[in-house]
Computed example of a mutant assay.
Amino acid sequence: MTQTATIVGTVEFRPGDGPMMPIPQGPVDIDLNRTEATLSWVDGETHGAAAMPLTEFKRYVSTGAIALA
């Protein structure tokens, strides 16, 4: 099930083995499953997506960095 949210604080993800990368502030679509959250967004002409463990996603929500709609 997809839901919408807004990135309002610092939210980062690690693409593969690379360094942490920020997710731009603004609207995101979120797909949740039992173990992870996949966030997708549009920043200008760039489309991005990131998967993160569900525990990490819940931490961002509880600290207010991600505001659920």
Rank of each mutant, 00 (worst) to 15 (best):
A37L: 02
Q3Y: 13
D31R: 11
E45H: 14
A69M: 11
A50R: 06
A65N: 01
G48L: 02
N33T: 09
V42Q: 15
T6P: 06
G44A: 10
A50T: 05
S62G: 06
V8C: 05
E12V: 13
P15C: 14
A67H: 14
P19G: 02
T4M: 08
P19Q: 15
P15D: 12
T46S: 14
G64P: 02
D29R: 04
A49L: 14
A69C: 10
M20N: 12
L39A: 04
M52V: 01
R34Q: 08
G26I: 07
V42Y: 09
I30D: 07
V61G: 06
S62E: 06
M21L: 12
D31T: 10
F57P: 03
I7E: 03
S62I: 03
L68E: 03
L32Y: 01
T63W: 03
I30V: 00
A67Y: 13
T55S: 10
I23F: 02
T46L: 13
Q3C: 12
G18K: 15
D43P: 02
I23C: 03
P19L: 13
I30F: 07
P22G: 07
G9E: 00
V8Q: 10
I66C: 08
E12S: 13
R34V: 03
F57R: 08
L32E: 05
I66M: 00
I66P: 05
T46A: 14
T55W: 06
T2F: 09
T4W: 06
T6I: 12
Y60I: 01
T4C: 06
P15V: 12
I7N: 04
V11R: 00
N33M: 05
L39C: 04
F57C: 07
A50F: 07
D17A: 15
S40P: 03
F57K: 04
Y60D: 03
M1R: 09
S62T: 05
P27M: 07
T6N: 15
L68H: 07
T2L: 01
E36S: 13
T4F: 10
V61Y: 06
R34W: 00
M1L: 04
T2Q: 04
P24V: 01
A5W: 00
A51R: 10
L54C: 02
T63I: 07
G18A: 15
E12A: 10
G64S: 08
P24A: 09
W41H: 01
F57L: 08
P27E: 11
V61R: 00
E45T: 14
V8K: 14
D29T: 09
V28C: 03
A37I: 02
V42C: 11
P19D: 10
A5Q: 02
G44W: 09
I30W: 03
I66F: 02
A69D: 14
M20L: 15
M20Q: 11
P27Q: 12
E12F: 09
F57S: 04
A65Q: 05
E45N: 14
I7M: 05
T55H: 07
T38Q: 07
T63M: 04
P15E: 12
T4S: 11
G64I: 04
T10P: 08
L68K: 10
P27N: 02
L32M: 10
F57M: 01
M20H: 13
V8N: 05
L32I: 04
A67W: 14
G26D: 05
M52N: 00
